[in-house]
Design a protein around this nucleic acid. Structure first.
Lengths: 311, 311
DNA sequence: TTAGTGAACAACTGATTGTTGTGGATTGCT
DNA sequence: AGCAATCCACAACAATCAGTTGTTCACTAA
């Protein structure tokens, strides 16, 4: 299917005749006739009834018209997504982390007129490089690793501390607990698939392991949250951490348990990073929105790695 | 923007290298290289970083990928909308009538897996012809005009009686009324723009005029409901009829009043029409859905033209 | 009947797209 | 280091396509 032909189809539908559409598109009437004929041959249906005083949409044409318009709209947005000058705001979020997606959903609800592209880069180094080069506009990350401070031209603000909860199957030893002190998790196997080594996310769990002597298996391929939940549900010896405001599709009948962790509650610190000189107008809107909606949290009784930026 | 190029882009992104993508698409690697180069030139950005062991998406490529996928999805749906064999269910609704759109929205919510194309044909004759030819699958209409019964092969069932309410501006003589007897509307100007003469909708109001002596101006161009509401709000001498379950975007600050009409309440009878031999599987689903959700209404105190099919 | 309007067909031409052939760059093995 | 393997880009050529001009056909209105 040729987009030029689709554009021509819409032009003819709006003009009501081939000649006017041809003038609108600055081509000859014969070219329009050919394009429509080719499109009709490709679709296998007649789109217009040709009359002496113009062309009228057939029923098939009427049904096709909104789809054609949508197609042109999507093509326009696709092109705009990489237009160097005024492209949508590009925000990098942490893969599989729903808290950040929730923040972006909230921003989109509050500002539906702002075009967004949500991306998932590999780690904070990639993100910082992309921010400095202007390839992306902002990134949600936990910053910064020890001995590697953020460059001067990168600004950041801590926007959300996400409390981690323990997720277990019904047969797990801790399944019945109302809450679990962090120290009591020693000796239990905690499985966090899909965390790539070398990322700041992995560093977070490394610190948690070092400080509390937990057993966290942060390796192994990630087959998606469905597979993760399936395995957790069926394996009494396994548990996993999950952010509190997770909005996963909760599979029914699995008997999964979410157990708050206390003394202290480990929280994952999300910060927004951006380039000080980034001129994208929507970036200021995003920062304002986040400042307004993410109220201060109570830091008492929580744990975060010592290397993250303070609040 | 060439859809073949976009398809190629997605193939390369999935394959991770040009050669494999070329094999998948049954073209040569050189052709893939050319298509990607052309697409990159058109977009003005580099989409892949070429390495010795394959091609990797740039950040721009990552941002473009979901748009490209969406574009192909929409193109597929556009083509499917006119595919003679298994196209989406085509349902004709009455223009500017929200009750029917509401029914279809409910159906779509209940069966999101069913592809729908909602259309607006001119009048019931057009609809019946389209149903008999198989061009559409169903139509919401008020049937049938006197002396012109439905053909034998068209089935119909009355699905909804939509009570009409009076809509006035704040300065209208009836603006303060809690309800208005139909007879009391005699002498007031009622404006219904956009009703094409010759349609069964026009026949409905013709009957209402004839029976109760109302003054209904059913002619004039329709500039959309926004313009209609603006005019109604600003013109004390004008009112209009509007279906009760209307879900218009209600303009704030207009002071519009909705006044129930009584003794009797005019109701617009919506029926579903379809061809007895139509094999579309979704048609049966729609009929079942409508039968289940549109409960019987109380006919007492209501008025409908004598020529509509009984309930 | 006769303009006048609007779309389709035919012939031609330049541009595009695919192919084959080949070269350059990187990686991994010996 | 040397060499083969892998992978992408460039060049030249062939086939196809899309657009143009010129013309015909169908219908409508005067």
């Amino acid at each position: 299917m040729d987009l030029e032909a689709v554009r021509t189809f819409v032009a003819v539908a709006e003009a009501g005749q081939f000649q006017k559409a041809a003038a609108d598109l600055s081509i000859t009437q014969q070219a329009v006739s050919k394009r429509i004929a080719t499109l009709e041959r490709m679709l296998g249906v007649r789109l217009f009834t040709r009359a002496a005083r113009g062309a009228e949409l057939t029923i098939d044409g009427q049904a096709f018209l909104p789809h054609a318009r949508e197609l042109l709209r999507v093509a326009e947005r696709a092109g705009a997504s990489v237009r160097p000058g005024r492209r949508p705001l590009r925000v990098d979020v942490l893969a599989s982390r729903s808290a950040q997606s929730g923040l972006m959903r909230g921003f989109h609800r509050a500002h539906p007129e702002i075009d967004l592209d949500v991306m998932m880069l590999f780690d904070i180094d990639t993100a910082v490089t992309a921010i400095r080069s202007g390839a992306i506009d902002a990134s949600f990350r936990a910053v910064a690793a020890p001995g590697r401070p953020l460059p001067e031209d990168i600004a950041s603000v801590r926007v959300l501390d996400e409390p981690l909860q323990l997720l277990t199957g019904p047969a797990h030893a801790l399944a019945g607990a109302q809450s679990v002190p962090l120290a009591q998790l020693v000796g239990h196997r905690i499985w966090m698939p899909g965390i790539a080594p070398g990322t700041e996310w992995a560093a977070y769990y490394d610190d948690l392991i070092a400080e509390y002597g937990l057993t966290i298996e942060a390796t192994g391929p990630n087959f998606g949250s469905d597979a993760l939940l399936d395995t957790i549900a069926d394996t009494p010896a396994l548990a996993t951490f999950m952010g509190e405001p997770t909005r996963l599709i909760w599979p029914a009948g699995h008997g999964l348990r979410r157990i708050p962790v206390t003394d202290p509650t480990p929280v994952y610190p999300h910060s927004l990073l951006w380039h000080r000189d980034n001129p994208h107008p929507a970036l200021a809107t995003l920062r304002t929105h986040l400042a307004a909606t993410t109220a201060g949290h109570d830091a008492a009784g929580t744990w975060a790695p010592g290397w993250v930026i303070p609040r």
